[in-house]
Design a protein around this nucleic acid. Sequence first.
DNA 1: TTAATATGCAACTATATGGTTGCAAATATA
DNA 2: TATATTTGCAACCATATAGTTGCATATTAA
Lengths: 107, 107
Amino acid sequence: MQDKITRVLKAIADPTRREIFHALVVASAAMPITQISGQFQISRQGVTKHLRTLEDAGLIHINSKGRERYCFADAEPLKEVNHWLKFYERFWDDSLNNLGTYLDQPS
Amino acid sequence: MQDKITRVLKAIADPTRREIFHALVVASAAMPITQISGQFQISRQGVTKHLRTLEDAGLIHINSKGRERYCFADAEPLKEVNHWLKFYERFWDDSLNNLGTYLDQPS
DNA sequence: TTAATATGCAACTATATGGTTGCAAATATA
DNA sequence: TATATTTGCAACCATATAGTTGCATATTAA
């Protein structure tokens, strides 16, 4: 399949998935799927698909209990995104650097 | 269209685009499209499409000079991703918190 | 036992995505 | 001027994505 970081980035690249993930994080409690999907306009099945994507990225975990499936957030995979970002940190402040590069073009 | 942060996340969610962006960052010099595409296996047009996506996200800027178009990286939009991540920072360390949540399920 | 609830699976649709190729136009070079 | 180079545009293709609906199944509650 895909790279781990690619899975995580694709997972959080969708606004609805970011909302679902956020809801689970701030809830700080495991929630069954129906309860989660009740907070969104899209169908339960739509939410379920997003949950699977989040699960594949490791951003949530699901645990069955009776007929219900409890989902809870796990922010740990975001560490890797943070690490990826860290390399570029030194570049996003010096806009002057970019400007310099721009001015460095052959004329 | 889309949210700014969504555009940025979608842009970096593709491995080829991350490579292109990285190449431009470390080059720390503006490069014409043909020169960039020479570093990748996919066609020039394929690269051009990725460059447009990166440009829409603000991760590169393009400047025409004669028949050439010079591209250079701009890491600034990554700040917003960093800011989004920052909120979750406090959650990704305490795996115990997640475990607690897990154990908090009704029985 | 019967009814309600929570879920998964499958099929389907529309659109986005990552890639290709062919061709035309603009610019630079011989 | 004739030729080579850099690029954009457009059409096309295969697959992925975000969403839907219908139905079957398992579990819980009346």
